Simulated scan of single mutants.
Amino acid sequence: MQVIKESYGQLDQQSVFSYTIINDQGVEVTVINYGCTITRIIVPDKNNHYENIVLNYETLEDYLSDTNYLGAIVGRVGGRIKGGSFELDGKEYTLMQNDGTHHLHGGKKGFDKVVWDAEIIEGGVCFSYVSKDGEEGYPGNLTIKVTYTLNHNNELSIHYEAVTDQKTLLTVTNHSYFNLSGDAKRNILNHTLTLKSDEFLELDQDFIPTGHKAGVANTPFDFRRENLIETGVTSNYRQNVLVGNGYDHPFLLNTNHDNEIVLKEKESGRTLTVETDEPAVIVYTSNMLQSEKDFQGVPSQKYLGISLETQGLPDAIHHANFASIILDKGQRYTSVTHYKFGLMVD
């Protein structure tokens, strides 16, 4: 296993480096220590043609001005927090409001917008960061580690660990946009998705969970059997139309570490299987992809990638029927998500 470190640029007198992990199958994963951002995942198609399967930019400057959270770790809380505030133990905390009056993906300068420390380890890279008490409005000094490892079975693992010295909120995720066609040469409408999920969270007009867990049966949200992404894009179902014709919804997972999320693209033959210990995956079909930049020379456009954000539920602090995302003082936060890259069997 190789890990190649290269200079990627400078930010406020801090050095940014890229780390490319290469296994003996020729699969490559490149991550930069700005935002722990995945910039490339190179895997073969059915004809053994190696291509990148995540949307990326060419330069650090592009990532500095990115509004799409492209490939980055987002937190302290992935997703939206209604009104940009919450209460813990009778005390009200006001967060950075960076999505109208709401808080999104950790705020204006969340985990995606900082330079992390990095250490090369066996088979990967361990990134670490100390989020100070009050950063973006969150209480507590939080020490967090995010470790990327690649094995020779073409499996990328992301391990999260954190501790805090004061009760706070935490649920982090990776925000890569996958496109299994390779080098974004086709959109993701003809990708198929299979989810072991019976319920999804209904959203309001601001894309905040209403608290209602809706059944997927007889809706375009039923991926219990393999279904085309295009199904929800062309549907007039209210929840699909609401988010810009597609998906931007949390799905509650029935099971963990059991092939619970499978993405496929028939033309390339590529498959991606995601397994996690998180309770949910937010499926986002890039309905609102900002168009200020190109990706790999391909003009930015809706449906160019799909994010599979494994995490706790957005706005959980305001819903007693959602699993808690509160991290107590001294409690250890741990989470792991595995991404298995493969090929369809004829």
Rank of each mutant, 00 (worst) to 15 (best):
I38R: 01
T39R: 03
R40C: 03
I41H: 02
P44Q: 01
D45K: 01
K46L: 14
K46C: 10
N48Y: 13
N48F: 09
H49N: 15
E51T: 08
E51Y: 07
E51S: 15
I53M: 11
V54K: 01
V54W: 04
N56K: 07
N56S: 15
Y57W: 10
E58W: 08
T59Y: 07
L60R: 09
E61W: 13
E61T: 12
E61R: 12
Y63Q: 15
L64E: 07
S65E: 12
D66C: 13
N68M: 15
N68D: 14
N68Q: 14
Y69N: 15
Y69L: 08
L70G: 05
L70S: 14
A72K: 10
I73F: 08
V74P: 12
V74F: 08
V74E: 07
V74Q: 12
R76F: 10
R76L: 10
R76G: 03
V77F: 06
V77N: 10
G78Q: 14
G79R: 11
R80I: 08
G83V: 11
G83I: 11
G84Q: 09
S85A: 12
F86A: 12
E87W: 07
L88A: 14
G90E: 08
G90K: 05
K91N: 06
Y93D: 02
T94M: 10
T94P: 05
M96N: 12
M96D: 13
Q97M: 14
N98I: 02
N98A: 09
D99R: 03
G100M: 11
T101Y: 06
H102R: 04
L104V: 05
L104F: 10
G106Y: 04
G107H: 03
G107E: 01
K108N: 13
K108V: 14
K109N: 09
F111A: 00
D112Q: 08
K113G: 04
K113S: 05
K113R: 15
V114Q: 15
V115R: 04
D117G: 12
A118S: 09
G123H: 11
G123P: 14
G123T: 02
V125C: 01
V125I: 12
C126T: 12
C126Y: 01
F127E: 04
Y129I: 01
V130D: 10
S131L: 03
S131A: 14
K132P: 06
K132G: 13
D133A: 14
G134V: 04
G134D: 03
G134L: 02
G134C: 08
G134N: 09
E136D: 11
E136W: 06
Y138D: 03
P139N: 08
G140S: 07
T143G: 03
K145T: 06
V146A: 00
T147V: 10
T147S: 09
Y148K: 09
Y148F: 15
T149A: 00
T149L: 00
T149S: 03
L150G: 00
H152N: 10
S157N: 15
I158L: 02
H159T: 00
Y160F: 13
